[in-house]
């Protein structure tokens, strides 16, 4: 089997299986844990409060305290901590590394030098304020990303979309997102089926240029199919009375437990702010 062909096959199958397993599987959202038991509206509001608290935090201790709260919530919601750490730490370098590294050096953060590096005749000095600022930035990113990932893991995607609509995000925007989500799955299946059909007729040894032609043909086919689908779905929407502004049913019911949780988070938010203002975190 050609190595390049094998690479394309493995990449394609890898992407498809990642999409199916991580994007479409609501494994943790279906578990019976603490966050899963909350009213999604209250849950989203409290998570926004947590992320705001992280944004306002000026100290690393404050950020780490909120990160610890996030890990405890993950544990209480029966999310595997190993899986959760892997999922969040994949994103963190992407978000923070490129921004945080330059902030280490005296060019951007002047102050007391900690370490001096000589790279190709250029002297780079890491400063104390630089190191402190970069560390604070990374902990803030860790905590914020962890809360966002925890929210998406413990909430079924359709519930998340529904809450966004109820919270006033333009309906058409949320509906488009929901439909994208819905039809990406269909296209993933279509790609898988086409690949299996090609393999069943030509075996696994497809000559590389021919493989390229097959892929190009598939892209064109998917494009045409998506255009057709777009038109047909719009007709199906019109047929059931859609007139440009989708209506949504709000059938969520908040329980006393949800209000208690909201009060607790509000109190936590206030205490955190006061601790920041009074300098308790140092």
């Amino acid at each position: 089997m050609s190595k390049r062909n094998n690479f394309i096959r493995r990449s394609l199958m890898g992407v498809l299986s990642f999409l199916k397993e991580s994007v479409f599987a609501d494994e943790y959202a279906a578990k019976k844990g603490f966050l899963q038991s909350l009213d999604p509206r209250i849950k989203i509001i409290t998570f926004i409060l947590f992320i705001l608290a992280i944004l306002f935090t000026q100290s690393m201790a404050g950020s780490l305290y909120l990160y610890a709260v996030c890990l405890i919530l993950a544990y209480l919601s029966r999310v595997s901590i190993g899986f959760f750490l892997k999922r969040t730490w994949i994103f963190i370098p992407l978000f923070s590394l490129f921004i945080a590294i330059p902030a280490l050096f005296s060019v951007f953060s002047p102050g007391e030098p900690l370490l001096s590096l000589n790279m190709a005749g250029v002297q780079l000095i890491i400063t104390r304020p630089g190191l402190w600022g970069a560390a604070l930035f990374v902990t803030r990113v860790i905590a914020s990303v962890s809360f966002a990932v925890l929210l998406s893991l413990t909430t079924k995607h359709f519930v998340l979309l529904k809450v966004l609509r109820i919270l006033g995000i333009p309906q058409i925007f949320v509906m488009t997102m929901g439909m994208c989500y819905r039809y990406i799955y269909l296209f993933v299946e279509m790609i898988e089926n086409t690949y299996t059909a090609v393999k069943s007729r030509s075996g696994v040894n497809i000559h590389y240029p021919r493989g390229q032609r097959v892929v190009a043909w598939n892209i064109a086919y998917l494009w045409v199919r998506s255009c057709q689908l777009n038109e047909e779905v719009y007709k199906a929407m019109l047929s059931r009375g859609y007139s440009g502004e989708p209506a949504v049913l709000n059938d969520f019911k908040a329980k006393p437990k949800d209000w208690l949780w909201l009060s607790a988070v509000l109190a936590m938010f206030a205490v955190n702010r006061l601790a920041e203002i009074w300098g308790i975190y140092g």
Binding site: M179, Y181, M237
Partner: peptide, 20 residues
């Protein structure tokens, strides 16, 4: 597949009467 465009079956079923 053309007719079922909402995230859940329930939302798909009630889409029509909600719009109307």
């Amino acid at each position: 597949d053309v007719q079922l465009f909402c995230p859940t079956v329930k939302e798909d079923i009630i889409f029509g009467p909600l719009q109307l």
